[in-house]
Amino acid sequence: MQWNSLSEFLAMGGYGFYVWVSFGATALCLIGEVVLVRRRHAAVADGDGGGVS
């Protein structure tokens, strides 16, 4: 373990802003894409009245 405390971990040696925005944006994009694809799938599945989940 590289860190002695949570605040040290969050500070990332003074680069916290750059590191966390990078990781946060990546997480947001990946999760967002999954949500969009699921909605798209729900939309086509509903469209024909069929029983495809």
């Binding site: 373990m1 590289q2 860190w3 971990f9 990332m12 040696g13 003074g14 680069y15 750059y18 590191v19 990078s22 990781f23 990546t26």
Partner: peptide
């Protein structure tokens, strides 16, 4: 990958912890 990259990997001697962006970049 996040566990190793953010918690276990050492700080870079040149770039400090900013280098950790490499794990997503």
């Amino acid at each position: 990958g996040l566990y190793i990259g953010l918690l276990l990997a050492p700080t870079d001697f040149q770039q400090g912890d900013s280098y950790r962006i490499i794990f997503v970049h």
